[in-house]
C-alpha cells in the first residue's frame, strides 16, 4: 500500500515534492511535456515586460491545470522591487503564492538575505503565501519562519550551476532547527542531488536548469521525479546510522571450518 505522504502548504495539499521551473526550455511545448512527465504539482514563472515583437501566446496556457503556479520575483534587486513584482503577480490573477527572490549579485546570483527577509515580512502581512529563496543561514531562516514564510528555500549551489548540494551541512541544520518546510532551490544538477536532499528530510526540491538543459528534458524529468520519491521514501523509512567499523550481514556462527572460536 502506498504511504500517504502529503506536503501541506496552508490548505493546499501537494503530492509531488518535485517542484519544476519553467525557464530555459526550447519552447513552451517542451516545457509542458516536462511538467507532465514530472507530474508536477507546483511550478514557477517570472514576470517581465511584454515583448511586442514576440508571439502573443502566454506560457500560462501551457501549464497543466493541476499545476499550481508560484510566481517568482526574479529580477528584483531589493525588497521594494520584490514587493512590487509580487503585487503585480497577484493583480494578474496568478494567485498569492510567491517565491521571493532578491538578487543583487550578477556573478553568482546569490540572494540578499536581508532584503529577502524584509520583502517576506511585508508580503506575509499582505496575505501572500511566501516562499523565500535564501542563502542557508540559520538566523535568517528562523526569522523567515517566524514572520510566517510558508517554507524556506535554501540554495544548493548557485542558480543554474548544476553543482549539486554544496550547502549540505548548512541545509541539514535548517532541517533540524526550522519547523517550516525546507525546500532546496537552485543548483541541483542530477537526480541523485535531489535524492540526497529528500533523504536528509527536505520537504521538497525545486529543479529547473538541470532538466531544461539536459540532453532529454522529458526523460530526466521522470528521473528526477523517481529520485525525489526514492529519497523521500528512504527518509520516511528512517535511514540507518553510519559507523566506522564493519558489521557482518551474515551470521558469525556455523562457519565451514573447525576453528570457529570467535575473533
Amino acid at each position: 500500500m502506498e504511504v500517504e505522504d502529503i506536503l501541506k502548504i496552508g490548505d493546499v495539499e501537494i503530492n509531488n515534492r518535485l517542484f519544476v521551473g519553467t525557464g530555459k526550455y526550447s519552447g513552451n511545448r517542451m516545457m509542458q511535456d516536462v511538467l507532465v512527465a514530472a507530474d508536477a504539482d507546483v511550478t514557477t514563472v517570472a514576470l517581465r515586460r511584454v515583448d511586442s515583437s514576440a508571439p502573443v501566446e502566454s506560457i500560462l496556457d501551457y501549464i497543466p491545470p493541476k499545476c499550481r503556479v508560484m510566481v517568482n520575483t526574479s529580477g528584483a534587486r531589493n525588497a521594494d522591487e520584490a514587493i512590487r513584482i509580487a503585487r503585480l503577480a497577484k493583480a494578474s490573477g496568478a494567485g498569492n503564492w510567491i517565491k521571493v527572490e532578491v538578487v543583487a549579485d550578477s556573478k553568482y546570483l546569490l540572494p540578499d538575505n536581508l532584503e529577502t527577509l524584509k520583502a517576506t515580512e511585508t508580503l506575509v502581512k499582505e496575505g501572500f503565501v511566501v516562499f523565500p529563496y535564501m542563502s542557508p543561514d540559520l538566523s535568517v531562516a528562523r526569522r523567515l519562519a517566524d514572520c510566517g514564510a510558508a517554507a524556506v528555500m535554501p540554495l544548493g549551489s548557485p542558480i543554474g550551476s548544476n553543482r549539486g548540494l554544496r550547502t549540505k551541512e548548512l541545509v541539514e541544520i535548517l532541517i533540524h532547527e526550522i519547523k517550516a518546510p525546507i525546500i532546496v532551490d537552485a543548483g541541483l544538477g542530477k537526480p541523485s542531488d535531489a535524492c540526497i536532499c529528500m533523504e536528509m528530510g527536505c520537504a521538497a526540491v525545486l529543479v529547473n536548469t538541470a532538466i531544461a538543459v539536459s540532453g532529454n528534458p522529458v526523460e530526466i524529468a521522470r528521473a528526477f521525479r523517481m529520485a525525489v520519491q526514492a529519497g523521500r521514501r528512504a527518509y520516511l523509512s528512517g535511514l540507518p546510522e553510519e559507523s566506522i567499523r564493519a558489521s557482518a550481514s551474515s551470521p558469525l556462527t556455523g562457519f565451514l571450518r573447525d576453528d570457529h572460536k570467535s575473533a
Partner: peptide
Amino acid sequence: IEIISFVGGG
C-alpha cells in the same frame, strides 16, 4: 505605462 506578462523562470 508598464505592460507585464509571464515568462519562463526557475
